[in-house]
Design a protein around this nucleic acid. Structure first.
Lengths: 272, 272
DNA sequence: CGGCAAATTGAAAAGACTCAAAGTAAGTGG
DNA sequence: CCACTTACTTTGAGTCTTTTCAATTTGCCG
């Protein structure tokens, strides 16, 4: 039983690089549990009693408005942590999370997490990393929602899924969609029908080919990516800072605000 | 010069609760700098060379799409940290940040931050807290963008500003808007004109009264808050978990997923 | 085959964006 | 003090996107 937890934790981001001693300790603290599909792990506003590490299956965190429309914030699979931010900020969950499938999870209760923090700075550091990743991810979502159309967001989502579970065959990439249209809508911030239409339109544009509702092929990933409006990850040529500049002292970094070979219009500045 | 930094750091969330020794050490590492209004501190994708603590003035972090439309992610004022998540995740900034006004800031370089992390677990813990706060805040933004109309988001913004800088007088609350319509638009994810219309409409609804463009009064905060669709903070009666249940062992917390006296429709579940 | 959930499609309406034209406010320099 | 510039705001009209509602259709599973 605890052996399970050790194996899991060894590959979980939250524990990466930590000593076996701590790993074992964490595993001994962990309370294992199962969720059936559709079961809710916790509700928004609830007092956070601990963090959860996903062992099997899939959890989905989301927010819901008064009419019941929902926006999913994140998906957690094997090795991922859920509910971490609540422990470090405010102590109440700020989303509802539900099991997307039957799932197995481990819970580490709040005071045990605190114990781990006290014991091993590396653990806190990993927690910080996990949180930073979430911040980054959320920033992406915010940009998408604010700046892109539904069709673009659907395209973005498809590229994402293709990257993590598609099978490439030359330039073409085949994939199976794990989500229903409704669920996709909840991810990209729209509605069933609009997502459905987005699929149709993407197909008429030749950017995707749907076999079945759940099976589709992307003839040209680059094209779809470009359509989605997402800048291709990890920067093209001549983008990043000159590394050699790094490491010298003093306030150099903000002496030259404007330069930089960018073609973007200048940003707003708040009035005095 | 370094004295400045100590005074600032003592009240900054990133250093709260830390020993004077660490505080002094951090202050001695800090590089002070000034930004003029409109100057850019760093660009998205740039290699993160350190974190910044705001001493004076206001910084704004945002993302921009290809056409130059921008979405602001956060505002940082005195005592706030900027660029923290980049250090803990990936090492490159994931937004651009600009000075909204003339500003004074302190930079702690990457290797110095690492040094502080190694030296004091409390520092890492504070960093984690700061990141968790940002996660929470971003979740709010995502919900707003996905689930609410522009008018509601404007209302939400007004309530926010009123809470932090409005002056109440009985039930009525007067306030000065620090931002132009364009800047508000960038915050709530819309455009000048639409925000302008939102103000007009809110006024015809009697939810706000504008004196000048920058001065307005909210006759009834509760009404405006309700209009915005944001659940009133910190939960009404009978909402939170029964505290007395907390602290007992075992996997009780996920044995009863469904219960909970909620009136919301049941969430989607991804297909098998 | 019947029943059910998911998906699609059409049509109408609402919401949001864009462009263009005016209006307002504050500051500058004569 | 006034004309003038500049930046910000408002408003109207047209268009496009997105949502919503309703009606089918599809595919699956018992």
């Amino acid at each position: 039983m605890k052996a399970d937890a050790i194996v899991l934790f060894r590959n979980a981001g939250l524990f990466s690089g930590l000593t076996d001693a701590i790993l074992r300790k964490a595993a001994s603290m962990a309370i294992s549990g199962r969720l059936s599909r559709g079961q809710i792990l916790f509700y928004e506003h609830e007092r956070a009693s601990g963090v959860y590490i996903v062992s099997e299956g899939e959890l989905r965190s989301f927010r819901q408005d008064a009419e019941g429309r929902e926006q999913t914030l994140s998906i957690a699979r094997c090795g991922a942590v859920v509910g971490l931010s609540a422990l470090f900020s405010g102590g109440t969950f700020f989303n509802t999370t539900i099991a997307n499938s039957a799932a197995e999870i481990f819970c580490i209760e709040k005071h045990d997490v605190e114990e781990l923090c006290r014991e091993d700075p590396g653990f806190v550091r990993n927690a910080a990393r996990a949180l930073a990743n979430q911040v980054r991810e959320f920033a992406r979502v915010i940009e998408s929602l604010a700046l892109r159309s539904v069709e673009q967001r659907v395209a973005e989502y498809l590229v994402l899924v293709a990257q993590e579970s598609g099978i490439e065959n030359g330039t073409i990439c085949a994939m199976e969609l794990p989500l229903t249209r409704s669920a996709i809508a909840s991810r990209v911030g729209s509605t069933r029908e609009v997502v459905s239409r987005a699929f149709s339109h993407l197909e008429t544009l030749g950017l995707i080919q749907t076999k079945d509702r759940r099976i589709l092929a992307i003839p040209d990933m680059a094209a779809l990516g470009e359509f989605s409006g997402v800048e291709l990850s990890s920067s093209g040529p001549g983008f990043q800072h000159d590394e050699s500049l790094e490491g010298d002292t003093a306030g150099r970094m903000w002496l030259n605000g404007e330069s930089k070979g960018k073609r973007l219009p200048r940003p707003y500045v708040a009035a005095s």
